[in-house]
Design a protein around this nucleic acid. Structure first.
Lengths: 223, 223
DNA sequence: CGACTCATTGACGTAGCTCAAGGTATGTGG
DNA sequence: CCACATACCTTGAGCTACGTCAATGAGTCG
């Protein structure tokens, strides 16, 4: 049974050569560049050949919520046709150099119509995305910061998907923006875990020394 | 541009007669009965011919989060093939007498494969569901209870989708469970709105007297 | 008309916020 | 290679939004 995944990767690799054959544009983004800029409607879909990007939402209060990460071998955003107001506040930023195949909505629709396997993969992608959002909106909401953090560390560093997808380094500020808590509050929970010998921290790095203890702190839905 | 909808309805009515022709089971549920019981894996899909059901998640702390409502002319749950751990904590309850066509995963897959219009509608459903969850997980998270409530009242009572779908009456307890706040805290915000003459409340009923003022309290993403 | 559901208000404790200050790596230009 | 700037992390202090507990009121129904 599947647990939430913050990092999407390698779910469309089976279609890599198929995508290459079909009409598309090759594009590259530098670290820090927007794949999807603020205020822009989301017109294009990207198949990521290499690199990693993060998707986040800017709240009118100035706080930012990191929603998900998208690495090599996946499509972002999900294929959809309707336009939602919230998309104006969503943006996608390259965390490293990113190399993509860009499809217009029409180009992707043509592939979707003819390729039954692709249809199923799009469904699978949506169910996985919905699962992450359900976990965040309906489960994590009721956990305190400490449990939220343990859950996140488990999903990013211990779980199969987390280990495979390998985010590499991450700032504590980013962790706070994933969980929707303040940096100060996040640091306090990390300090507790460090004092208990569960983790070791250094600049942009968190190493889990005692995964079994970390898991005992996690909530039931997490693994 | 579309705003979040808590109530799903009439998005599959175009397929009503198509569904009737295809293999299915007709089922009826009484008010309070589970369409999807706790701990049960989600094996079946329902096309709701009449009635309304709510989908919610039970947290291990005992708190409940109401996620969405599903009325006539829609499908629930969304068509998907993978199994997620969180589904064990999800449940769906009939809020009134509910009459459905029940499809097994295989039966629905057969229809999905042959019917291109259905494929597109399933995509639209997923994008709408993802939009609601994004709104909840990434936007409402940063609003205080008062703004959360104003947003919800707008979406349920003022917005086009809310008015059309018509939840009818709703307890304040349910509102609190949608927003993930305590009943006490919710009541205080309602009291403020009542004192300002924005709403009138009575048992299971909320009437908006001054929609323009309510809207001024809402956050930017809401309409 | 008693029992139950639903709504309201008060009292009080605390998780997590902001503000503020400082410490420690990492990178960069001279 | 050093001086300095910048990014990142940590800790303290005080405030507040929101949670729980508790008591009561006000509709609804068999």
């Amino acid at each position: 049974m599947l647990t939430p995944a913050y990092i999407f990767s390698n779910d469309f690799t089976a279609f890599a050569s198929y995508f290459e054959e079909k009409p598309h544009t090759v594009r590259s983004f530098c670290k820090g560049e927007y794949l999807w800029a603020p205020g822009e409607p989301y017109e294009k879909l990207h198949y990521i050949r290499s690199g990693i990007a993060q998707n986040l939402l800017e709240h009118e209060s100035g706080r930012r919520k990191i929603i998900s990460f998208h690495g090599r071998g996946t499509i972002f955003p999900g294929y959809h046709r309707k336009r939602y107001k919230i998309e104006r506040s969503l943006l996608t930023v390259a965390l490293s150099a990113v190399d993509v195949l860009e499809f217009t909505s029409e180009q992707f629709t043509a592939m979707f119509r003819e390729n039954a396997a692709l249809q199923m993969q799009v469904i699978d992608w949506f169910s996985s995305y919905a699962n992450l959002l359900l976990y965040e909106a309906a489960h994590q909401e009721y956990n305190n910061t400490f449990v939220k953090l343990c859950n996140l560390l488990y999903l990013l560093l211990i779980s199969e998907n987390g280990r495979e997808s390998g985010l590499g380094d991450i700032t504590q500020d980013a962790l706070a923006e994933i969980l929707g808590v303040s940096l100060v509050n996040l640091t306090r929970s990390l300090t507790r875990l460090r004092q208990e010998g569960v983790i070791r921290t250094s600049r942009r790095q968190i190493e889990v020394l005692k995964p079994d203890i970390l898991m005992r702190y996690c909530s039931y839905e997490t693994f």
